[in-house]
Amino acid sequence: MAASGAALAGFVVAHLAGNLQIFLGQEAVNRYAHFLKSTPGLLWSARLFLLAMGALHVVTSAQLNREARAARPEPYAGKAYIKASPASRTMFASGLIILGFIVYHLLHFTFLKLHPQYGQLTDALGRHDVYSMMVLSFLNPLICAAYIVPVFCLCLHLSHGLSSLFQSLGINTERSRAGLAAGAVVFAWGLFAGYAIIPIACQLGWVKLP
């Protein structure tokens, strides 16, 4: 769980770094996309690795969930929590939303099956115009919402998941735990800010079509 989560979290960071190139303009984004496409070895090994990690993460979480239910066959009439964070209590739900979002997101930006009208453009150099696809998509408020809400869930998920990872891998110590947990929260919400700023920028016209 922790190891696959760490790998997926790493991807989320790398992905954000790629996305933020939108602020560098059309050329940067499209060149980056073209670079990825033109190194299929790298691209596919990354994709397969992520797929494996994702599958592992889903399988282990299903297993955890099953074991947790088996470990308490008779539930409490009214269970109350006094310490557990909302993020930690909604991991399974937020995970499901993220899973759904990944499918939607891939259909949208990778397989270009959803909103195909934004996906067929090419730029002046004949490359796939990813930049315009992103901007056009995020000019649609519904797509913005369908993006921001799951990303919120993702970051909620990460805010617990990361601190949990330090705990599960035994990285936490008496001294570092509070700091690492706070760091995880800051990191997660930093990611959210990074991801959310893109559709917002499109909506507010900070990022414009070429």
């Binding site: 929590y81 310490k83 601190s163 599960s168």
Partner: peptide
């Protein structure tokens, strides 16, 4: 013994 796994909610420490 059939205990579940830890998902680091710290509820244990709180009680």
């Amino acid at each position: 013994e059939g205990f579940g796994h830890c998902t680091n909610q710290s509820e244990c420490q709180a009680v």
